[in-house]
Design a binder for these strands. Sequence first.
RNA 1: GGAGGAGUACCCAAGUGGCUCAAGGGGACGGUUUGCUAAACCGUUAGUGGCUUUGCCAGCGAGAGUUCGAAUCUCUCCUCCUCCGCCA
Length: 425
Amino acid sequence: MLDSKLLRENPKKVMSALKNRQFDTSLIDKVAVIDKKWREAVFKAETLKKQRNENSKEVGKLKKEGKAADDLLEKTRLIGDEIKKIEEDLGAIEVELNQILFQIPNIPFSSVPVGKDESSNKEIRKWGNIPSFSFKPKAHDEIGVALGILNFKEAVKLSGARFVVYHKLGAALERALISFMIDVHTKENGYEEVLAPVLVKAHSLLGTGQLPKFEEDLFKCSDDFYLIPTAEVSVTNLHRDEIIDYKKLPIKYCSYSPCFRREAGSYGKDTKGIIRQHQFNKVELVKFTDPAKSYDELESLTKNAEMILQKLNLPYRVVELCTGDLGFSSARTYDIEVWFPSEGRYREISSCSNFEDFQARRAGIKFKKDAGSKPEYVHTLNGSGLAVGRTFAAILENCQREDGAVLIPQILKPYLGIDAISAVY
RNA sequence: GGAGGAGUACCCAAGUGGCUCAAGGGGACGGUUUGCUAAACCGUUAGUGGCUUUGCCAGCGAGAGUUCGAAUCUCUCCUCCUCCGCCA
């Protein structure tokens, strides 16, 4: 959510920034009108309340003195009725205003490249050598099925399309990757591990920006629960409606969770393999920072995520998203893309974003510099560190051998105790 | 799921319709005293949100209601505790 004061005082700036996101700026004009109505109603209600408080005190005094207070009583009753009416209006105005405010995306950071879609994204850096094969590299799902470590038919039996069952060393590899990632982030990068609920209430999703606009991407359960699409939701909301001690910033969390996405808009896209699933595992990095330092923290967060790929020796590149490709809540985003030999291209494996105070304002997350100062909103950041299923797939593809075996990155040896997954083990 | 009980500020807690625009204590912070520490004494301590900001309005788990006036009365909900049932 944007600051309504900013909208009030500098609507032109907001509009020009949001135009780059293909956003319909007529909503901004509407906000101004409703906001004015709201402030007038607030002032009126408060003036009347002041009058009522004074009158009530007077009534009490008169009654104690045994004097009649009927006139004043009646007059004050009418004031009460009026207050009630104004407050009803006020409630409706607030709903209307919030409905719009919740629909407005974040303002892109000043240096974000302007562009319509992903074709304007900017490559920042590349790492690693793209492997060359003396044979035609196979797709990860083909490799996994052949090795007996991935089974899609069983998954269809259980849950339908876009699910997978891991077997034997496949299940072990998935588990090993989760542990490995968490170990790196906790032991080397200074993150605190968190394991949080994957079922959350709507207000948590409102806090991070998935609701109200993106309900169709979510699985909704009964009893007002939603399955989280990312651990970002649970972990960011850990500090909802809190004022954090400045000395505790930055707070850095690392959290494994399964993630659940309906993939409503992607029928027919990535139907093969484990790239796009309704349920997948992810290790997420979340930071709460001093606004003055959040862009430095975005750089280090991105490098923390990259470190995983480096240790696994998987080639990747880092791309900055342009204004048109930026997520709803984000002010600046780096995507990390890993190389997929079977497709001959890089594919997203992590998305690292600075949300500035957009989520913090929605979720009420503040900090106080010292005892006397006024609370300010923190900046929140997060990024995948990494998407586990896609890392699994990337290992299968990049580390495959002609005989169908897959060499396991050496760094995983302590977790798996093997050098390769082959058809006969 | 059933039956009870509770929720007041950083913590404990008083408060059953107007002398409470929330008492008292602890803690914390500041000061006096002191060679230093402790003790004692004095003082400060409701954080926050909003507005047309010397001020005003809101706020006692949340929301609604009754009333001229609600921490206090009524209703709904949430959370926690105890017991029973069920369960990994």
